[in-house]
């Protein structure tokens, strides 16, 4: 049997390596199962992978679930400011009743999770360091994710929607003054060449995005028992490694920025609380208002210690 796995990142990315681990382990298990990986959007564009997975046109994807928040508004909770505090908290969230609810919704689209995983991110700016909401006031900013844009807008930033490929140029010429995205994206956009200050994910971080390995449920159920066992075993091993790497990514991005002579700022617990208060009035509120049963789902997520 051959399974096709699609994702948007280059072959050096940690998320590609997670996919590769699964493919290697499954092949080694000798259960007539081969996983063919299509990296760098070579099969489907980043934001256009969910529906093909749901219809079985591709078998597996590594995917930031919030990309599909327009179709399933509940998924917006997987990229919500301050909802996840750090990587260990993220790991507990993965095993919580909140995630069970998300998985129920996914099952309606015939999709299941193989590997849970969160990646963190931070702020970078061409001017002064950004640690508190008042620092973004008046800045032209781009954020990865709707909820973050809502929060930044509430802080007085002007939101510029633009393609990720234009961010480098835009920061160079000053069209864009601040960016909020994942640790690994900063380095792949080579933003260290343009920014003055970087606020990475540290002991507390605001930006966490759920980016699991997902699979078409019917395809999984169609596998033999031996194949299922091999796949699940490989997935479990990959999940542990993914968590470990997710922590390492933050530190690695700091090294890249330091080497380029960029100032590194740190967010304190007090700063974090200021952002969280703002998020509660903006993005949390907008989520609860627009999603039926949104409050209950949010409470489930907040209940995770």
């Amino acid at each position: 049997t051959e399974l096709r796995l699609s994702h948007q990142w280059s072959t050096g990315d940690v998320r590609h390596k997670v996919a590769e681990m699964i493919a290697t382990d499954v092949a080694a298990a000798n259960v007539d199962l081969e996983i063919k990986i299509f990296p760098s959007e070579s099969l489907l564009k980043a934001r256009e992978q969910y529906n093909p997975l749901s219809r079985g046109q591709v078998d597996m994807i590594v995917y930031p679930l919030s990309y599909s928040g327009g179709q399933r508004p509940e998924y917006n909770l997987t990229l919500m400011p301050g909802l996840v505090k750090n990587h260990d908290h993220a790991a507990r969230l993965n095993e919580s009743p909140f995630m069970e609810e998300i998985e129920k919704i996914m099952a309606e689209d015939d999709i299941m999770i193989l590997v849970h995983g969160y990646l963190a991110g931070g702020f970078a700016s061409v001017g002064d360091c950004i640690t508190r909401p008042e620092h973004v006031n008046g800045l032209s900013t781009r954020a990865a994710g709707k909820s973050f844009e809502e929060m930044l807008a509430a802080a007085g930033a002007s939101i510029s929607s633009m393609a990720s490929s234009e961010v480098y140029n835009a920061m160079q010429t000053g069209v864009l003054q601040a960016v909020n995205t994942s640790s690994s994206s900063f380095a792949s956009f080579r933003l260290q060449e343009q920014v003055k200050c970087y606020t990475p994910a540290g002991d507390v971080a605001l930006w966490f995005m759920y980016q699991p390995v997902m699979m078409n449920k019917s395809t999984f159920e169609g596998l033999s028992d031996a194949q299922k066992t091999a796949l699940l075993a490989a997935a479990e091993k990959a999940e542990a490694w993914y968590l470990e790497q997710a922590k390492a990514e933050d530190a690695a991005s700091v090294e890249v920025f330091k080497a380029a002579g960029v100032t590194i700022a740190e967010m304190t617990q007090d700063d974090f609380n200021a952002w969280l208060d703002l998020a509660k009035q903006s993005s949390y509120k907008s989520f609860v208002d627009s999603v039926p049963n949104g409050q209950a789902l949010l409470d489930l997520a907040l209940a995770v210690e």
Binding site: S140, A157, S158, I159, S160, S161, M162, V175
Partner: peptide
């Protein structure tokens, strides 16, 4: 809107 008025541009790109 972005350069002269310094305001958010939410809908235009899309």
């Amino acid at each position: 809107v972005r350069f002269v008025m310094g305001q958010s541009t939410i809908w235009q790109t899309e």
